[in-house]
Design a protein around this nucleic acid. Sequence first.
DNA 1: GTGATTGCAAATCGTTTGCATTCAG
DNA 2: CTGAATGCAAACGATTTGCAATCAC
Lengths: 158, 158
Amino acid sequence: MPQPAHRQRLLRAMTDAGYSSTRSRRAIVDAITSAPGGLTAAAILERAQNAHPSLGLVTVYRTLDILSGLGLVRRIHMEGGCHTYALAQCAHGHHIICERCHRAVEFEGCELHALENSVTLQTGFRITDHWLEMFGLCPSCQQEADEVPAQSDCLAAD
Amino acid sequence: MPQPAHRQRLLRAMTDAGYSSTRSRRAIVDAITSAPGGLTAAAILERAQNAHPSLGLVTVYRTLDILSGLGLVRRIHMEGGCHTYALAQCAHGHHIICERCHRAVEFEGCELHALENSVTLQTGFRITDHWLEMFGLCPSCQQEADEVPAQSDCLAAD
DNA sequence: GTGATTGCAAATCGTTTGCATTCAG
DNA sequence: CTGAATGCAAACGATTTGCAATCAC
């Protein structure tokens, strides 16, 4: 399920920022906006090559740099020093990642301010930035985990 | 300033877990416990080589695996996919890292539970883990930054 | 047409592995 | 003495860079 609104938004933002709209970039934006969550650079390449077979990994990285520089995509740090890239949807977002299907969902992290105050008191640091990710099981995977993996997975909640 | 209490604690925990106390490991533990905060593997190597010149980077990594496996050292994920390793001091700790001197100080992150509840409500995920790091200026670096280093860039707006 | 963009090959960087040597108990 | 631990060299995977060919405007 592609999300035309997001696709448009990203493409628009890129051209507004002075980047030309190329076939490679369109394919990459399509791959990202049509994914349910975070993708590695390699996964983005694979998906985007459906629309543009000669696309190279290098261009994926370069486009991701642009997109995350513009705040349109967020780089999610995974165990083992590799990354996943997910659409930035809300303002002050962080991601929660499903440990089973790797879906990444954004949530508002403003509650963090209380913690920041507490940390300032505890440590005396002047806080300038933070970095938060959560891990768990998304609703569909919880069901699958509960209703013993019979085989089907008929009722994927969204 | 070495911290004999911590050094003892780590060495003891390693031997208790069945790892022998070797010269390499002692040098590495010394480097970690005498540092004011997080160090990269390369930085640990450099420091430890004072006490043990023929030490190799591989052994640093292997020892860090053991130490973080035992929960004695925490691996801190930095921008650019590399890591820093810091002494784990309190139970449920996360680190706040000084952007200037890279000192890493641990704080209690229990306040996070409120946020976890909120995220559960927002997303329906069953949360199993989280990952939080903060960045800022430590007290000493704030002073140095305020008491303007005399010469340059006097009025950097933040 | 012209500068931006691309993609290949090769370089880089942090980290891990294979294996023969050395060390701790 | 014997298995655990070490360190070198080489492998590895993600990401970046040099450069000539290609594309968007």
